[in-house]
Design a protein around this nucleic acid. Structure first.
Lengths: 154, 154
DNA sequence: AACGCCGTTGAGAACCAGTCCCGATCAGGA
DNA sequence: TCCTGATCGGGACTGGTTCTCAACGGCGTT
């Protein structure tokens, strides 16, 4: 896993530094969506440390290398997710509790490929996000009901 | 058109102010995706003026009332688009020239409805964005070619 | 093992979209 | 016209992210 990073860096003649290793380790070991702060906290927890500029630069680098993806769930900051060993997937974001769940739909790839070629567009990445309320907690289910009723009457 | 706004405001017992009218006018007369700054500039151009706090508040209000939608095209700021008289649509964003084009796909609504019910999720809004390169300018087409070749070899 | 080049690091300053504060102003019902 | 409560606006503030630049550290070379 770390070898992949090492290889990508060598290929571009970029140094494999201690900080890059530590940050990548944090990313690779988590399947969650981490903010820059989460990464810094995880580093502290294992006795490591990296300046915030380095954390941001390294996360951007991982995205550039294709080893991570960047997400914006409308929280006012970005989150990052390891891409290694995970299939392309999209997200459902609960606006009540903040939980993010993932899904894969077999038709989406085809649809976007069709769209791109129809528009003379070369698609590089896509972002598909569905915002709404989940049914994990009682509070979320309550909001679901409220929303459904409001939708019916307006 | 302005009557719609007036009605929505009355329904919620909110005052129909001169600033709200002017900002809504700017939005309703444009089919483009305007940033808060664009709106302020458009106001200036027609001899109006509104503090930026008011611009932001009013745009948020229009979104709340269902008369506008908010977009984030990864430029570091939000853009707003009037929703009046426009069908649900999604966006292709060219990362080379910044052009945004729209598309509608007949299957997407069905797919997201299915997904939501499968996950016990009540979908409120969705954001579907495809980032890539368009074929509008020579520079964009050049990047398209470069990207296709890079994709082939890696 | 020591050298040197050059990209990286980090602490803090800077940046900037967006929000908050609060006294002045205004919409609109009585 | 008067009154009341919401809005407005200029400027201060917030907080995520980027920039600055001197010190440092990979890593290929000698």
């Amino acid at each position: 896993m770390m070898q992949v990073l090492r290889g990508e860096l060598r290929e571009r003649e970029l140094p494999f530094t201690h900080q890059r290793e530590a940050i990548a380790q944090v990313m690779f070991e988590s399947t969650r969506h981490l903010s820059a702060d989460d990464v810094a906290a995880a580093l502290r927890q294992r006795g490591e440390h990296a300046g915030k500029a380095t954390v941001y630069r390294t996360l951007a680098l991982l995205v550039e290398l294709g080893l991570a993806t960047e997400h914006d769930f409308d929280e006012g900051f970005k989150r990052y997710e390891t891409k290694v060993g995970a299939a392309q997937h999209d997200h459902l974001i609960c606006t009540a509790c903040g939980r993010v769940s993932t899904f894969q739909h077999p038709e989406l790839d085809r649809i976007f490929a069709e769209l791109a070629s129809e528009h003379g567009f070369e698609a590089i990445t896509r972002q598909v996000k569905v915002f709404g309320t989940c049914s994990e907690t009682a509070a979320c289910r309550e909001l679901q009901r409220a929303y459904r009723e409001a939708g019916r009457t307006s």
